[in-house]
Simulated assay, not measured.
Amino acid sequence: MSIYDFTVKDIDGKEVSMSKYKDKVLLIVNVASKCGFTGQYEGLENLFEKYKNEDFMILGFPSNQFANQEPGTNEEIKEFCSLTFGVNFDMFSKVDVNGDDATPLYKYLKSNSPGVLGTEAIKWNFTKFLIDKNGKIIQRYGSVTEPKDIEPKIVELLGK
Rank of each mutant, 00 (worst) to 15 (best):
S2G: 14
I3W: 04
F6G: 04
F6T: 12
T7R: 12
D10L: 07
D10N: 14
I11R: 06
I11H: 08
D12A: 14
G13Y: 09
K14W: 01
V16F: 07
V16T: 09
S17I: 01
S19I: 12
K20R: 13
Y21N: 08
D23T: 05
K24E: 07
K24N: 13
L26N: 12
L27T: 11
I28M: 04
I28S: 00
A32C: 04
K34L: 10
C35K: 12
C35A: 12
G36D: 12
F37D: 05
T38E: 07
Y41R: 08
E42H: 02
E45M: 01
N46Q: 15
N46K: 15
F48W: 07
K52H: 14
N53F: 08
N53M: 10
N53A: 10
M57P: 02
M57E: 15
M57Q: 14
I58M: 04
L59H: 12
L59G: 04
P62T: 09
P62Y: 09
S63H: 02
Q65E: 14
Q65H: 11
A67L: 08
P71E: 00
N74L: 02
E76T: 09
I77D: 08
I77V: 13
C81Y: 06
C81P: 03
S82W: 10
L83N: 13
V87L: 02
N88G: 06
D90L: 05
D90A: 09
M91I: 05
M91N: 08
S93L: 03
V95C: 03
V95F: 05
N98V: 02
D100P: 09
D101N: 08
D101F: 00
D101T: 02
A102Y: 04
T103R: 02
P104D: 09
Y106C: 00
Y106H: 04
Y108M: 06
Y108W: 10
L109Y: 10
K110A: 02
N112H: 15
P114G: 08
G115S: 10
L117N: 15
G118I: 12
G118S: 12
T119E: 09
A121I: 09
K123T: 13
W124S: 04
W124Q: 07
F129D: 10
I131R: 03
K133Q: 00
G135W: 05
G135M: 02
I138N: 03
I138M: 06
I138V: 11
R140A: 00
Y141V: 02
V144M: 15
V144W: 12
V144K: 13
P147C: 04
I150H: 07
I150D: 07
E151P: 00
P152V: 10
P152H: 15
K153V: 05
V155C: 01
E156S: 05
L157Q: 13
L158I: 08
K160S: 04
